[in-house]
């Protein structure tokens, strides 16, 4: 019982001083509690209700039951396109991002000269504002003025339409995603430095080569962090918005129109708040299912200090 636990004597009845301390504690955390209730819980619960309504901000809200959900699956011409695009991006980009970050962290964990400089270089993309990164990539990838295509043009070769061709646009965005793995790299680095050296030394004595050590020591001992980065990547992957919005605005041919963009357009371009809330809850369900799946399967592949 919560109240009882507050009493050092284990008594259910609080003393005056304990009650005072409790009140003080509640008073001091009340800004957070109020903030959470007003700005998080209330909107969250409201959005569940809104998802069953037709609501455009202005005209009176109308309860329409499951119509928004039915519409999404049966009468939304873009829904399956954005679902496909998002799964493509998440399915390829997220595992690849985690793998690249892990490999980069391993490289940076060696005794290479100027290691701290390399670490900074890898981390910098993560702290650059997205709008700046977008502009840089636009002028790297652009057909007309892009650095790569200017070189190709100077060589008399046909250009590569990175962001202008429906087949290349998603892979190009994944490439940009891989470039911005600095945060994951730093987290992996911290995990790698926590791996006991003695394990590697023992493995060396047993005749293990580099690959064996990597496979049987580095990966298992980093697996909790791999799982963490995978889940974080999954969440941010499903919410991908800024880069495609800034770089391609969903084009060409809606090939980079992702789920979060579709949700945004419904909410703030078409003012269909009810449908946007329904889209948001569907995304939540999918995200929760994926996260749950990873947690459920983690017992098979995540290694926690000697116990699986």
């Amino acid at each position: 019982m919560a109240v009882a636990s507050l009493s050092p004597k284990g008594s259910a009845r609080m003393t005056k001083g304990e009650r005072h301390n409790l009140m003080m504690g509640l008073l001091f955390v009340s800004p957070w509690i109020l903030g959470f209730l007003i700005w998080t819980l209330y909107p969250l619960l409201s959005s569940v209700f809104f998802s069953f309504t037709r609501y455009d901000f202005i005209t009176p809200m109308k309860f329409i039951g499951m119509q928004n959900y039915v519409e999404i699956f049966t009468r939304d011409p873009r829904f399956y396109t954005v679902v496909y695009n998002t799964f493509y991006y998440v399915g390829i980009g997220v595992p690849l991002g985690v793998a690249v970050a892990f490999l980069m962290a391993n490289l940076l964990n060696t005794d290479v000269k100027g290691r701290s400089v390399f670490r900074a270089i890898f981390y910098v993309p993560s702290i650059i504002p997205a709008i700046c990164s977008a502009m840089v990539w636009l002028f790297i990838f652009n057909n007309q003025y892009g650095v790569i295509n200017n070189v190709l043009r100077a060589l008399g070769r046909p250009i590569i339409p990175f962001l202008s061709n429906p087949t290349l646009s998603k892979p190009s965005l994944i490439l940009i995603h891989l470039w911005a793995q600095g945060t994951a790299v730093v987290i992996f680095l911290a995990a790698l430095q926590d791996v006991p050296r003695s394990l590697y030394e023992a493995a060396t004595v047993d005749g293990a080569n580099g690959w064996h050590k990597f496979r049987h020591i580095t990966i298992p001992l980093s697996s909790p962090i791999i799982m963490y980065n995978l889940i974080m990547g999954l969440i941010s992957g499903f919410q991908t918005f800024l880069m495609p919005y800034l770089l391609t605005n969903g084009g060409p041919m809606a090939s980079t129109e992702f789920y979060a963009m579709h949700l945004y357009r419904n909410a703030f371009e078409l003012f269909r708040m009810g449908k946007a809330c329904a889209l948001a809850w569907l995304m939540f369900v999918v995200l929760a299912a994926f996260t749950l799946f990873i947690f459920r399967t983690s017992a098979r592949w995540v290694f926690y200090g000697g116990e699986k």
Binding site: L138, N142, N143, L163, L247, P252
Partner: peptide, 25 residues
């Protein structure tokens, strides 16, 4: 060429009120 046009759109401001005309593209 559709790809070329899409690339120009991203840089020249087509669909954005005359940017490409002002750039003489």
């Amino acid at each position: 060429g559709p790809d070329q046009v899409a690339g120009l759109r991203q840089a020249e401001g087509m669909g954005g009120w005359g940017g490409s005309y002002n750039a003489e593209a």
